[in-house]
Each structure stands twice: as structure tokens, then as C-alpha cells.
Simulated scan of single mutants.
Amino acid sequence: MESQKVRVGIVGAGKVGISLAFTLKQKGFSVTCISSRSADSLERAKAYLGQDVSLTERNEETVERADVIGITTQDTYIRDVAEGLAQRFQSLSGKIFFHTSGAHSSSLLAPLKERGASVGSLHPLQTFPDVDAAIRGMRKAYVFVEGDEEARGVLLKLGKNLGKRVYEIEGEKKILYHLSAVLVCNLLCAILYSAERILEEIDLPLEPFFPLIETTLSNVKRKGALPSLTGPIVRGDTKTVELHIEALKGKALEREVYRTLSLVALEMAKQRCSIDEERIEEMRELLR
């Protein structure tokens, strides 16, 4: 697939859609059309993509103008978009459709496959708080693809042009992949928010903890999570853990976060054989 000869269309002018279109355009792909029901979103897309990309409120126009069509809407609407397009076209033979959900397989696009299209999914493993951050982050992202044979071949090439590296993944296993992404990204933010709430009581910001966070992530990147664990749990320091739990009285949510994650850390300590069984049971009882 030569990038200059493939016409790419995008359904959905949100952060993911605009950043995909922008990056592919920068890589020499012919991005022909982007569609959205939101006039504001289309205006924002125009600011990033320029005059040579058609903007439309009609998804079928995007399909007509492109060979490869990315459906970048929120997960909730992917199936509806697919069904709507399948109703408007008798045949979609020769077209390749993909969606950008991290949690769902290309089976969401079954109505389009029934019309003769090839289908797949492409997910950049990155967090996209806004369009500018999405464009910057896309270049560093690992991209995961799956789908039927024809779609997979095209998406592997798109992925190589979008991000740092591309991986194939089995469609039925995507939910576990997405769950892992939520744990390391979304729920990491929740943990840091919990720390912020506690720090408010002693008038401290989160900023002094950034070097600690960065060093921890660097250690995990270099050695893995298990050998990087430090702190009172892995040392078997029940007295400190007891003081932590005491300090969390009246903070039910933070206490539950601490208790649950400490039980995970305790399992890690057990795997590392850093404390004996008696201390493990003592710690487990304390955390119940």
C-alpha cells in the first residue's frame, strides 16, 4: 500500500479523529474527508487539517470519498454508525473500515462486513486529553491492530506511520488489554487524586512527589513492577501500616484504596519471598 495512493476518511472529528487525520496527512497519506454532526468539531478539524480536507456532516460522504475509513466516535456509537452506513450502501466491496476503540473488537463493524467491506480495529495506546496532546502523544504511542486479513495488512501499515511501534492483538483479548490500560493510566490518576486529597490536610501540593513518581516509573521500565516494589509492605513493617490505617479513619474511600492496593503489594512481597508466612498472615489480617 503506497501512502500517496490510499484515500483515508475519518468519521468523528474529536480528539482521536483529528489527531489521526493530522498525523497521517503529515506522513503523506491522502486524507480526503472528515465527518461529524458537530459544526464546532468540524471547525476545529479545519484549523488542524487545512482547506484540502473536505468537511461534512454526512458520514456517507466520507465513505464515498475514501478507501480506508476510520470510525473514531465514542465506543457507545460505533455500532450505530456501522449500522447506519450499512443501511445507506448496498455494497461496500473494496472499502476497509476500522474503529479506534481499545476495548472492543472489529466485530462491532459486522454490519459493514455483511456489505462486503473488510473490517478491523486500530488503537493507539496513549491518553488524549486534548488535540495538541493527542498529536504529540501519537508519535510515542504503541499501536494495536486486529481484524480480517485484508484490513489487518492495511492497518499494520497505518500503525507504523502513526506511532512508535505496531502490534497485532486478538480481537477477543482486547478487553484484557484495555483493562490493563485503564489500570496504568486512568486509575493511576485516581490514585494520585487520592494522594492529593490527603495532602490537602497538611497544605502540601503533589509537585514534590513528582520525582518519586518518575523514579518509580523509571525503575519499572528498567526492571519490571515486581522487583521495583519498595516500602513498608515488602519490608513487613506492620507498625507503619497500622499507623497508616489509623490515619485514614474517617476517609472510607481512601482507606479502601489503600487496603486493596496493599493486599496486591502483599502478594508481590510473597512472590519475592521478602517476608515470612507468619508476617504475611499478620499483615493480611491487619488489612482486612
Rank of each mutant, 00 (worst) to 15 (best):
E285A: 09
R272K: 12
V184P: 02
S105L: 13
Y142A: 13
S180P: 15
R37K: 10
A103C: 14
E57D: 13
L109N: 15
R37D: 11
G94E: 08
G17N: 14
I233F: 05
H123V: 01
V182F: 14
R288P: 05
V241I: 10
E149H: 06
R152D: 08
L183R: 02
L229R: 04
V264S: 14
D132V: 00
G116C: 07
S41M: 05
N161T: 05
S105P: 10
L158S: 03
S3P: 12
E61V: 06
A151T: 10
S194N: 11
N219W: 08
L212Q: 07
E61L: 09
D80K: 10
T216I: 14
G14A: 02
F89M: 14
K95P: 04
R165A: 15
K160G: 11
V11E: 00
C189D: 03
L158D: 01
V166I: 05
T56N: 09
L156R: 12
D80P: 10
Q4G: 11
G17E: 09
L176G: 04
G50T: 08
A66S: 11
L187N: 11
Y258V: 05
V234M: 08
E281D: 15
Q126M: 04
K223C: 14
E285M: 09
S36Q: 04
P232H: 15
L206G: 14
K157C: 05
E254A: 00
Q4V: 10
K27M: 10
E83I: 06
D67W: 06
L217G: 14
I202G: 01
I34G: 00
G171V: 08
Q74C: 08
E114C: 07
F210C: 12
T230Q: 12
G171N: 08
A86Y: 05
A110G: 13
V257C: 02
S41W: 02
T238H: 09
G84M: 05
L287N: 05
A195N: 03
R259W: 00
E83S: 09
K25G: 00
G12E: 01
L287K: 15
D75W: 01
F144N: 03
K15Q: 09
L179E: 06
E242N: 10
I245E: 04
L204A: 11
T260Q: 09
G17D: 11
Q74K: 13
E172H: 06
E61N: 07
K140D: 10
F97C: 10
L112C: 11
M268F: 09
R272N: 07
T32P: 08
A117P: 12
S38K: 13
G12M: 02
V68N: 03
L253M: 07
S194D: 03
G102V: 04
R288N: 13
H178L: 12
Q271G: 15
A252P: 03
I191M: 01
P111Y: 06
A66G: 09
V16M: 06
